[in-house]
Design a protein around this nucleic acid. Sequence first.
DNA 1: ACAAAAGTGTTCTGTCTACACCCATGC
DNA 2: GCATGGGTGTAGACAGAACACTTTTGT
Lengths: 233, 233
Amino acid sequence: MSKENKYCYDYPRPSLTVDCVVFGFDGLSIKVLLINRGVEPFKGKWALPGGFVRMEESIDEAAARELKEETSIHSIFLEQLYTFGAPERDPRGRVVSVAYFALINLHHFNAMAGDDAQKAQWFSLQDFPPLAFDHAEILRMAVYRLKGKIRYQPIGFELLPEKFTLVQLQNLYEAVLEMPLDKRNFRRKMLSTGLLIELNEKDMRSTRKKAQLYQFNQEKFNELSKKGFNFEI
Amino acid sequence: MSKENKYCYDYPRPSLTVDCVVFGFDGLSIKVLLINRGVEPFKGKWALPGGFVRMEESIDEAAARELKEETSIHSIFLEQLYTFGAPERDPRGRVVSVAYFALINLHHFNAMAGDDAQKAQWFSLQDFPPLAFDHAEILRMAVYRLKGKIRYQPIGFELLPEKFTLVQLQNLYEAVLEMPLDKRNFRRKMLSTGLLIELNEKDMRSTRKKAQLYQFNQEKFNELSKKGFNFEI
DNA sequence: ACAAAAGTGTTCTGTCTACACCCATGC
DNA sequence: GCATGGGTGTAGACAGAACACTTTTGT
């Protein structure tokens, strides 16, 4: 390094990794995607997908790359969460990890992942196995962020299929917030944002009355974001 | 490293630094504390206080230590902001920086810093010099966070002396939010949180009518936090 | 007595909350 | 025709916004 560069400090360096907390929604509850570790340390234990940051890539790129390598998931909502750097968090030595949190709808996942997903499994947030490293703490913080963020940013749509019903959307909110919501108030509120496009289609899968399908209005959202608006559920 | 540890990967590693965005309030406007760099790269330019993370300390500890070393400031509000890791952000090579944001009241600072503060200077957010590295971007994000956070967390008190008047508090909010606030509504709102202790003292420095002094009620805040409450200005 | 800064209430308006029945469809 | 799930309106409570004068005190 001192050869390539004029100004070079050579302090010892921690290793740098990324870890991704990937949330999915199956229509009933929120799930998190975990990988069964094939190597030591914590071989055989469950962990968040992640790995080492390479020298030539940004941290965001590393998170996206690791996620793709380990789960085949790509092009999804991915946002930096927090950086974890307690000295003893990794038995291999000093490893600092930048955690990300990601949202995907399970249909996209099934389409993308295919065979690659053998070592990956979805777990309920109410009932998941012991995790490697400090990944339980990372997961806890990601859940906290998800609960907070869904109230003031329209990120819920990332967890649903492109076309969805208001009942599905409400089920999602209730699952994330872990509380029941009033149906009429919820609908009024959501529709009043103007962020939902009413489609000329009904959901044909429901066995009884067919539900109206909606789509998230991305253009409208971009427009409102510029003007600094406030989404609040 | 492979000697000390059983499980060792040896990927090349980025350097890891911390940078602190320290905000102060002088009664009129918000200031940020910058250091004049004494060494290359960017020698003579202004930059955020910060430096390399040591192998035996956590990142939080590194931020507190660097802040103390460079400015004598210690024991203040300090919270992780975001991690910056674009490959070209530092001309010395690959350096990833965990940014922190900090709040201090200027009286504490003057008491602490003394002589050490020669290379440190406070700058207005409306008018500060070009910054080294990507520190302008870090500062931008810190300001954004401060504006957002002050609305739903009682962090404003960190920027004021222990005893303060409601007018001072309102001036602070107006400076941070960059908007005028209605005096009567602001007072009603603040007092209704129950987070202010009315003291048996008046501010004797004001030249005309003496203003009532208040103190932040930390115990009450801790209590309310546990029950998950909502502060909203 | 007057200038400067602190302090104080009320009305209006819009939003959140609570709440119960009808509609469409498949069996 | 009935069971299942989708869809709808209103009244009361509450909180935010707008707004102007009185009090204290130093000069």
